[in-house]
Design a protein around this nucleic acid. Structure first.
Length: 291
DNA sequence: CACCAGGCAAGCC
DNA sequence: GGCTTGCATGGT
């Protein structure tokens, strides 16, 4: 991982709050993959990127300065003080453990439209397969991106997917979720919904608007709010979160999703989204509840 | 080879 | 409101 003169080194002074493994293995982002040398490569906001860490810096390979300012600074959430968030959440001993384990997690600021489709695809699915479906969707309908001698594909916009049918989508092998993708495409292209409109709404109203899309239920909507809209007060409860919450806070006894959501809202408040990511990473990496 | 995956919609009560 | 069932596909 030598630094070339086309690479951009961003000196980030809180590297204890930044770890690419934690960031990309905590299930929030499906388009970045680890390379044999430990760097990660992926596509976001229409740009391809290979990134690695180096001492007190983050190295963005073959990247112009303007893309750091316009895209990557915000994507990696580099203006947020995670030390402060971690110190507040660590008052709870369970969270203190989870935070020690995933100390370098950050919540990426991802594109809203991409988050909607990605988390529709995520329903009752496993992460390797979710990644495959999203990759095939991008290859078949996105734009080519040439980067460091290889070809990548942007995530297709609503316009690029305009008029798509479930038959057209058979190549991505999304299963029964294909019709939900068609519904989202139709709602965006007809003007019933738009990213600007949804972003302008309060969190409860945005959640209602998102849930008007077929295939977007309570949990998928919470993921979209958290990962695509920077609404850190949302706390998505999936099977992993349900298991670890029951294990750590309810003496191992089964609870309804509603009970867990209300408990988390009271306990973590506006930092629920961060708490959720630390807990998700901790639960999955340690396979809590699957033994 | 069963079982299950970052759930949801539709149909029932 | 809450509970049950079917769902496409393929990873483990």
């Amino acid at each position: 991982m030598d630094i070339k003169n086309t690479d951009l080194v961003f000196k980030y002074k809180q590297m204890s709050d930044f770890d690419l493994t934690h960031i990309f293995d905590c299930g929030q982002c499906f388009r970045f993959n680890k390379n044999p040398d430990g760097s990660y490569t992926g596509v976001a906001h229409g740009r391809a990127l290979t990134v690695f860490q180096n001492g007190d810096g983050i190295v963005l390979c073959d990247t112009p300065e303007k893309d750091l300012k316009n895209i990557w600074l915000d994507f990696f959430d580099l203006d947020r003080d995670y030390s402060y968030i971690k110190s507040i959440l660590s008052a709870d001993p369970v969270m203190a453990d989870a935070i020690r384990f995933g100390s370098g997690i950050r919540i990426l600021n991802q594109d809203l439209w991409e988050s909607i489709i990605s988390f529709i695809i995520s329903a009752s699915n496993n992460i390797p397969r979710i990644k495959g479906i999203i990759e095939r969707l991008s290859e078949n309908f996105g734009k080519k991106i040439e980067y460091m001698g290889k070809t990548y594909y942007s995530f297709p916009t609503p316009k690029e997917l305009e008029g798509v049918t479930v038959e057209d989508l058979s190549v991505i092998r999304a299963g029964y979720r294909d019709k939900y993708i068609v519904d989202a495409v139709t709602k965006f292209n007809s003007g019933i919904l738009s990213a600007d409109y949804i972003n302008s709404l309060s969190t409860p109203d945005a959640k209602k608007a998102l849930m008007s899309i077929k295939g977007v239920g309570n949990k998928v909507a919470d993921c979209i709010l958290l990962f695509g809209m920077n609404r850190a007060d949302s706390f998505p409860v999936d099977v992993w979160i349900k298991r670890i919450m029951e294990f750590c806070y309810f003496d191992g006894k089964e609870q309804s999703i509603k009970t867990i959501s209300e408990f988390a809202a009271k306990k973590f408040g506006n930092f629920g989204g961060y708490a959720q990511q630390y807990l998700f990473f901790y639960a999955r990496e340690n396979r809590i509840g699957t033994e």
